[in-house]
Design a protein around this nucleic acid. Sequence first.
DNA 1: TAAAACCTCGTTTTT
DNA 2: CGAGGTTTTA
Length: 706
Amino acid sequence: MDLSKLNPPQREAVVTTEGPLLVLAGAGSGKTRVITHRIVHLLDKRPNGLLARNILAVTFTNKAASEMKERLVHMAGPRAQNVLVCTFHAFGAEMLREDIYRLGWPKKFSIADQGDQAAIIKRAMRERRIDDREFDPRKVLGLISKAKNAGKTPEPLGEGLGDDYDLIAHMVYEAYQLSLKAQGSVDFDDLLILPSRLLREHEDLRRKYTSRFRYILVDEFQDTNQAQLDLLKLLASGETRNVCAVGDDDQCIYSWRGAEVRNILSYDKYFPGGKEVRLEQNYRSTQVVLDAANAVIAQNPERKAKQMWSERKGGQRIQVVSAPTEEDEARYVAQEISRLVAGGIPPDEIAVLYRVNGQAHPVEEALREKNLRYEVLSGSEFFDRREVKDVVAYFKLIANPRDETSLLRIINVPARGIGDVTMERLVAHARRDSVSLWGAMERSESYEDLPAGAATKVREFQRLVERYRESYEHGHLAQVTRQLLEEIGYKDDAKSLTSSQASAERKLASIDFVINSLETFEKREGPKASLLTYLNRLSLDTRQEEEEAPGGNKAITLMTIHASKGLEFRVVFFIGMEEELMPHKGMQGEAQNLEEERRLCYVGITRAKEALYLTRSAMRVKRGKEVPRTPSRFLDDIPPELVEVLDLDAPRKGPPTAQEQNFFANLKERFKAPQAGGGVAPRVPGGGEGPSGPVSSPPGTARAVR
DNA sequence: TAAAACCTCGTTTTT
DNA sequence: CGAGGTTTTA
C-alpha cells in the first residue's frame, strides 16, 4: 500500500498502531481514508501474527459499516473479509445472540423498537394509575433510557427526584425492565449494557473477546454514549489496549440520544498514555465555505480548537436567500437546482438539507413541478406505517410467543372478535398465575370469567400462530407470509378500513414492500435466513433496500442534517435558516441545547464542496396561522464578505432602487472577493417576480462547472 | 364489539 | 389541515 499519498498527520495516524490513539479529524479531512488505510496497514504489517479477525471496526451507522467493508475488500482483497465492521448495537446483538441465556433471557430474544417500548411504559403507567395523557410515555421512556445508559439500576434512580417525570420514571423503571425481560425482549440500550454485563461477570467471555479483538477502531467517536464507552473499555481491558478513536468534537450532534462529547474531550482519561493526532487539512470544501463554517463553530466555548484549512482558495460566495414564504423558498430552491442541472451539475451532487423532516414537503412539491428527480432520505418513516408494524408484529409473535406487546397489537387485527375486555382479563390471569400472556391464553377454557365463545376464538388464534411458526421453519419466508396474509384476510381488511382509493393503494404497497424486502433478505442470506434473523436485521438496520434507479437516473437528495453526516455534495441548499428552526427550539419546557444546534449548523455547512445556499423565509404557516420569522442568529456569525444576499421579496414592493443598489454593491463586492477556481455560478436577482426567467450571471462569477 | 363522530395536538434529530 | 387517538353511539 502506498502511504506517500497521505499527508504527514494522516500517515502518523495510520502507522501508530500500538497503544491508544485519538485522531481528531475535522470535517472533510480524509477520516475514512485514514481508517481504511490503517486497517490495511495492519493487515500488511501483521504485528504479532495478527489476523483479520483480530480487528474490530465500529461505525455509527450500518450504511457506514457496509461501505467501509466494501472499501477494505477493494483495497486489501479477500483477506479483509474477516475484519469485523459493524455498529456498536449490531456488535452487542451478535454477542447476545450467543450468550444472553447466561443472563436469564431466552436464546431467541427479540429487540423492542420505540413503539414496543412506549407500549410497555404506557401499560406500566396504567397499572400504576398514572394518566398517560397527562404524562407523555415517550418522555418517561427518555428518562429511563438516560438512566440506563448512565449505568443506573432501578433502585438508585430514586435519588434527587426532581419533577413529576423523574418520579414517574422511578416508579415505572423496574416494571418496564421486568416486563421487557418477561417478554424475552431487550431494548436498544440493552444491546450495549447487557454485553458489558456479560464481559464483567464472566471471566471466560472477557478472555474470549479481549484476546480476539486486539486492534479496535471506533469511528464517529464524538457520538458515542456512556454505555458504548463502557463496552469499549471492557473490550480493551486485556493485554492490548490498541484502541484508535476517530472523531470530531465539533460534529457531536447526537447528545439528545445520550452522546457524550466528554468521551472525546477526555479521551486521555479513559485511555491514558496514548497519542493524539489532528487532521486539519480539509480536502472537501472551498476556503469560503470553510471560513463560514469556522466562523460559526468558533462561537462554541468547549471544544478542541482546530484550524481547518483548504488548498481550494477562494470559491463561490455563499448565497444567503430570503423568501417571503415557505413555498417561495421551495420554489427558489427548485428553480436554482434546475438551472444548475441544466448547467451540467449532476443531480446526485446536489443536496437539500434541513433541520426537521417536515421541511421536505414544500421542496418535494416544487421539485415535482419542475420534473426533477429527487430522493428523500427519511429515517424510519416506512417502518412507522401501521400496516408494516402490524405485519412485523405478526413476525415477532410467531418468532417469540412471549412477545406480549406484539401479541396485544395484532390479536384483533384484522378484527376476529377478541376485544379489549377479553384481553384485559387474560392479562390479569397471566399476572396472577405468573405465566406469560400466551400461557394464560392456552388455559382460556378454564377461566370462569371468559365466555366460551371468547375462549374458542383465542384458542383458534393460537393455533393459527402455531401453525405458521411451523410453516416458517420449513417454507420460504416470503411465500409463507403471502399465505398468512391471505388466510387472515389482512389486505382486504386494510383496504376496507380506509376511505380513499389512494391511501388504500399506499397500504397495499407497504405490505408488498415488506414481502419484497423479505424476499431480498432470503436471497442474500440463503439458508441462514430465518424469521428471527430477519427481525434482528430489521430492528438494527432501518435502511430501505436500495431501489435500483431505472435507467441509472441520478436524483437530488433531500435529508436532515443528521442524516447528512459524513456525506458531501458539490452544491448544498441549507433551508430554513431561521430562529426556532435552526437553532431549533426544543420541546416546550426543555431548554434548547444551543451548542449542539451550532454544531449541527457546522455539519450542514461543511457538507458543501463548492456552493452553499442558506435560505429562509420571512413567513411560515403554522397550525393554519401565519407567523413571521426571524433570521437565524448563526447567519450573523458569517463574515459579510463571504456572503451574497438575495431578497426574493424586494422586487415586489417599493421602488427598485434599494434592491438595485444592493445588486451593484454585490457586483462591486464580487470583484473584490477572492476568485473561485471552478466554482458554481449562482444566479443573481433579476428583478423579476421571484424565480422566473433565466438571467445571465454578472461577470466575475459566470464560470459554470465543466 | 365495531363503526362513526369527535377531539386533540403539532412531530427534532435515529441506533 | 390532517393524522391519530378517544369517546360516543348503534
